[in-house]
Write a protein that binds this DNA or RNA. Structure first.
Length: 274
DNA sequence: CCCCTATCCTGAGGGC
DNA sequence: TGCCCTCAGGATAGGG
């Protein structure tokens, strides 16, 4: 499941390879991955367009095209965006192939199809309501002053549900929500309202910390995540709680508890986290 | 307004 | 060996 560190790994890897390149050919294999008006316009606008920027907002990848439109890609659960030499075999569930002017292909693949592709200027996409409202960026230097900690203290939802809400904080998913709660020593089941100022501040510090750590290890690869060249990350080997229900807490040794919060599997240490 | 649940989708893994 | 069942979860629609 690509979250912020995984998406940022892809963006940083692809950027120097894509900037300045032109999309020579567009192959839209499964047009239902497009969530914008019509496939014909899509192909017309993307074909021949030059990439002038590669960025990220939350879990959305933005390929900025000359003239203003953004090709926006969300990877959902199982999406990958990889650069390949044309003759390399194409995996099943490859929904979109963009041929570059240097003989390589940018391939968008997503077996579970929770991802999507958008195209439009930022203004157009906003008017269409195609992009959700996104909260502050955990890696931004201003994150500490973004009001994130305060917004946690205003909700009656469980912490876990608030952390997964992209309007509260951009880019957090199931892995790093659990990891941040562990580092901040707060139970993900706690209602936001019940947090002390100190606990909310600890979460505000923990989230950028766990994400920077994961980014340094090029993301967590369980089943699906691959970087822009098909390689796995190593961050999953350094996780404290995610995927470790029933195993001993790395801090105190007690058995980690696994439960469901906000419809998601949630793992925490009932001794370290209060 | 806010919160919660069901839904989309495929592949992996367990049980028999 | 193969079949069936369950489970994984990001975002969103719709109900309470």
């Amino acid at each position: 499941m690509p979250e912020l560190p995984e998406v940022e790994t892809i963006v940083r890897g692809l950027r120097p390879h894509l900037i300045g390149r032109t999309f020579a050919e567009v192959e839209l294999v499964r047009s239902s991955v497009l969530r914008v008006p019509d496939p014909v316009t899509f192909e017309g606008l993307v074909q021949g367009a030059q990439v002038v920027g590669v960025g990220r907002r939350g879990k959305f990848i933005h390929l900025v095209l000359r003239g203003g439109p953004h090709l926006v890609i969300h990877l959902g659960m199982t999406g990958t965006l990889t650069l390949r030499k044309a003759p390399e075999p194409r995996l099943a569930h490859t929904h979109l192939v963009l041929w570059l002017d240097d003989g390589r292909e940018l391939r968008y693949r997503d077996p579970r199809r929770f991802g999507r592709v958008l195209l439009g200027t930022p203004g157009q996409l906003e008017r269409l309501g195609a992009l959700p409202r996104l909260g502050p960026e955990p890696l931004a230097p201003t994150f500490g002053r973004s009001g994130f900690a305060e917004s946690l203290r205003r909700t009656t939802r469980p912490l876990k549900a608030a952390l997964l809400d992209q309007a509260v904080v951009a880019g957090c998913g199931n892995i790093y929500a659990d990891e941040a709660c562990f580092v901040a020593r707060v139970r993900p089941t706690r209602r936001g309202r019940t947090l002390s100022r100190a606990e909310a501040m600890r979460l505000g510090a923990a989230l950028p910390l766990v994400m920077r750590q994961a980014l340094g290890l090029r993301g967590s690869s369980f089943a699906d995540f691959r970087d822009g060249f098909g390689a796995k990350g190593e961050a999953h080997e350094a996780l404290f709680v995610y995927g470790r229900g029933g195993l001993p807490c790395v801090r105190c040794g007690v058995t980690l508890r696994q439960t469901r919060v906000g419809g998601r599997t949630t793992v925490y240490c009932h001794r370290c986290q209060r």
